[in-house]
Simulated scan of single mutants.
Amino acid sequence: MAFGGLFLVMAFAFAGHYLGQNAVAHNADPGDVLESVASPSSNILAKGSLMPQAASLDIVNRSSTQVVALGGKGDFVVKAPKVAEAAEKAVQIVPAAINLEEESEESEERTALAPSPRQVEKAMKLKRSAAKDKDTKKEIHQRRVQLAEENCLARAIYFEARSESELGQVAVAKVILNRVKDPEYPKTICGVVYQGSGRRNSCQFSFACDGLPDDVKSAASWSQAKRLAKKVIAGDAKVAALTTATNYHADYVKPKWAKSMKRLVKIGRHIFYEDS
């Protein structure tokens, strides 16, 4: 009995092992390519009586495969389609607060609106040129006015006092400049010299409205008159007694206006007055 029981146990054990091996061979798919080392068979198959009848044996001896997401690992690499596809696609990370298209358009617009260095340099040159031209025109105008004023004063010295001494000629010029400063008279030398010259014998200086041509016949006297005119305009000729003089007349005439004015000094044949 004992020997018979031992024999039965060994028979059942051998049968269980044989069935387990057949189950592994039956469940393996002939088309499967084992790309990695299969895990050892479970001993559970050797205890078939312990498995539920409805249990599936698909989990037993299934080959485990190591999938490497990164490329370049030889025969052990199994390319996962979804991972490869995602890796091949270009990924662009854009912050939610930035619109690349709008930013690009604004950048291009700013670039288009910004002047180039050459345009800036050209504009600066034109500006400097315009300023220089303006200054040049201003200087030319001032020079012309100065020459006109000197000419008017020189003509008054020449025609009114060329026979007088240098002091007498300067005195006549000082009267003219004093009138320019007086609000009762014109504001320019030429305006003072030729005031009232539109009517004969109605002007302030007789040569300007006496009807005779103003021809310069003495070059020396004219040269001196121009020199003194420049000197007086520059403020280099001062006569203390004539600081307020606005009128004068020759000593051989007696104008009516002289009675209402204050006499200051006589220089040569001219008597000078100030408004009292």
Rank of each mutant, 00 (worst) to 15 (best):
Y252T: 11
G48W: 07
P52M: 11
K187G: 13
N247T: 02
V192G: 07
F159N: 03
S202V: 02
K138Q: 15
K73C: 03
K266M: 01
P115K: 08
L8P: 00
A23T: 03
S41R: 14
A38L: 07
K259F: 10
A171D: 05
K230S: 09
A250K: 14
K231M: 10
A13N: 11
G74L: 06
R62Y: 05
S163Y: 11
G16K: 00
P117K: 05
Q119F: 08
K134N: 12
T111Y: 13
D75V: 04
D275V: 11
A245L: 08
E166H: 03
L50E: 13
A38Y: 00
A15H: 08
T246G: 12
A219S: 03
E35F: 09
K132I: 01
K89P: 00
V77Q: 12
M10H: 09
S42E: 07
L147P: 00
L126A: 13
L153I: 03
V239A: 03
L100D: 15
S36M: 02
S276I: 07
G211W: 12
K181E: 01
K47E: 03
G196N: 07
S39R: 13
K137I: 02
Y185E: 04
A54S: 12
K125E: 15
Y248T: 01
L177F: 08
L177P: 02
H17S: 08
F3W: 11
E274G: 12
S64F: 11
L212N: 10
V193F: 10
M51T: 04
F76D: 07
S56W: 00
T244N: 15
Q66M: 08
A208M: 02
R200F: 13
N99C: 12
K82G: 09
D135E: 15
K266C: 01
A80Q: 12
M124I: 06
S276R: 09
G168S: 02
A25Q: 10
D133Q: 14
Q21G: 10
S260T: 10
Q66D: 05
N201H: 15
C152M: 04
Q142L: 06
K266R: 14
D29P: 07
H26Y: 09
E164C: 04
A55K: 02
K89D: 10
V91S: 14
Q66R: 12
I44T: 14
R118H: 01
K217S: 12
A219V: 05
M261V: 04
Q21L: 13
D214R: 12
E85M: 09
K231G: 10
V83E: 08
M261G: 00
I98K: 15
L147A: 15
S63Q: 06
K132A: 14
H270A: 07
P52L: 07
A154K: 03
A237H: 05
V60Q: 08
A11T: 10
T111I: 09
S39N: 11
V192E: 12
D214S: 13
F3D: 13
I140Q: 13
A84G: 00
L264C: 04
A171P: 04
G211V: 05
K187E: 05
E101C: 01
E102F: 04
P213Y: 00
A258K: 14
E85S: 15
R62Q: 13
E109H: 10
R162I: 02
K127L: 06
A80T: 00
S202R: 14
P40L: 05
V37S: 06
I233C: 06
A38E: 12
L50G: 02
N247Y: 06
L147D: 11
V94I: 11
